[in-house]
């Protein structure tokens, strides 16, 4: 927020400290986001189990959370295999929330990695339910988090767009995907992407003729 006054001016903002939870709140709605962040940070510190509640170094990530996320994902995958897509989506939801809730001192690259995988999986579950728009969005998030080496993510959004009949967008998206993955580590799986692209292009050509 850009204050019109100089840096010397002190403005008293209406803040309220909850006596029990020690959470800050304010009637000023503009501050809500900042206060949320602050409160969350506070909760993380309170929940620390390190001696003297010192903030631990970022390097060895607290294994508990990773294990929990991993477990949630596993159970989500299991449900998916059984065909219980709604159940799987719920599991992935929880895992995503947990991943997003990592304390700010842990490496953010890890969050990206986890979220990319989780959103990708959720997209697959959504596709299983034929919820194409949701799947497309999830797949998009997945690729935003990890652009290269994520053939599945590109493929899923392309498939969703195709199912929705948004062929032009699907074509553009798949082309972009092929462009990114061409030199990536998953070069071997590029064929799937290209096959889908050919499929979409064929559909477009047929539409143009009609």
């Amino acid at each position: 927020m850009a204050a019109p006054e100089g840096p010397e001016t002190f403005t008293l903002l209406p803040l309220h400290l909850d006596a029990e939870t020690k959470a800050l709140s304010s009637p000023n709605t503009n501050l809500a986001d900042h206060l949320d962040e602050l409160n969350r940070f506070h909760r993380h510190i309170v929940a620390l189990d390190t001696p003297n509640q010192n903030i631990p170094p970022p390097a060895p990530v607290n294994p508990k959370r990773s294990v929990q996320i991993g477990k949630l994902r596993e159970s989500g995958n299991a449900s998916f295999k059984k065909g219980a897509f709604a159940e799987a989506v719920k599991m992935y939801d929880l895992a995503i929330r947990m991943a997003l809730d990592r304390p700010p001192w842990e490496a953010s690259g890890l969050v990206r990695e986890e979220l990319s995988a989780l959103h990708g999986n959720r997209a697959q579950a959504m596709m299983g339910q034929q919820a194409w728009p949701e799947g497309a969005l999830d797949a998009k998030i997945s690729t935003e988090m990890k652009r290269v080496g994520n053939v599945k993510g590109w493929w899923r959004r392309g498939q969703c767009l195709k199912e929705m009949g948004r062929l032009e967008e699907a074509r553009d998206w798949l082309r972009q995907g092929v462009e990114f993955e061409r030199a990536g580590p998953e070069k071997a799986n590029l064929g799937e992407l290209e096959a889908l692209l050919r499929d979409v292009e064929g559909g477009l050509a047929a539409k143009a003729k009609a």
Partner: peptide, 11 residues
């Protein structure tokens, strides 16, 4: 929201 957060009247 962005508009509401501005303090400066001119802006």
């Amino acid at each position: 929201k962005l508009l509401n957060e501005l303090d400066d009247a001119t802006r």
